[in-house]
Computed example of a mutant assay.
Amino acid sequence: MRILLGLALSTLALSTLALTTPAIAQDADIGRSHYHTHCATCHGLEGRGDGPMAGVLMIKPVNLRELTAANGGVFPLERVVKRIDGRDPLVSHGSPMPVYGDYFEGSFDVPMKAPSGQPVLTSQPVVDLVAYIKEIQRAE
């Protein structure tokens, strides 16, 4: 009986841990590749908002290197994820982001932990892209 109770408690503890600390399988190198393919045209190779298409957009692309600084020192993970995967569309693009179609949309089955501690579900390409964008943040 003790063994079964111990096993049940261990299983419960592991289940609770899995729910409270979502695993983040992210790869900033893959994200860099996604960025150069899908984002650099507007945001520039270094993320400063100075890509070759920036001049023709009605609203200048944001400097992605300044997101943390502009948000009081906290990376705005949830806003960035939802902007990229289309849940928070950007009107200046004239369509959901990215303008390249639904590459970053799809099943929202990968959790990322927001600064609030709450998980934000998105797709694996978005997780990787956000890992890269976090990596290029300006050091304060």
Rank of each mutant, 00 (worst) to 15 (best):
A13R: 10
L4I: 00
M53D: 06
S10C: 14
M58K: 12
L12P: 14
V56C: 10
R138S: 15
D128R: 03
S123R: 09
K113Q: 10
L9W: 12
M58E: 10
L77N: 10
L4M: 12
Y35T: 10
S92F: 11
Q124I: 05
L129W: 09
R48L: 09
G72A: 05
V110W: 11
D102G: 01
I59V: 15
G72I: 01
R79Y: 05
Q26L: 02
V130Q: 06
R2T: 12
K113C: 05
A25N: 13
S92T: 12
S33Y: 04
R138F: 09
V126N: 06
L5K: 09
A8R: 10
A25I: 09
A139V: 09
R65P: 13
G94Y: 08
V127C: 05
E78A: 12
V110E: 13
S95H: 02
P119G: 08
G106L: 04
V127G: 05
F108D: 00
A69P: 01
H34W: 06
A40Q: 08
Q118S: 12
L90H: 07
K134Q: 14
R48A: 13
P76L: 03
G101A: 07
N63Q: 10
I3G: 13
S33T: 10
M1T: 05
L57P: 13
K82V: 03
E78I: 08
E135L: 07
E66H: 05
L14M: 14
S10G: 15
S92L: 02
A70C: 14
D29W: 00
H38Q: 05
R87Y: 01
V120T: 14
N63P: 14
A8P: 12
V91M: 09
V81W: 06
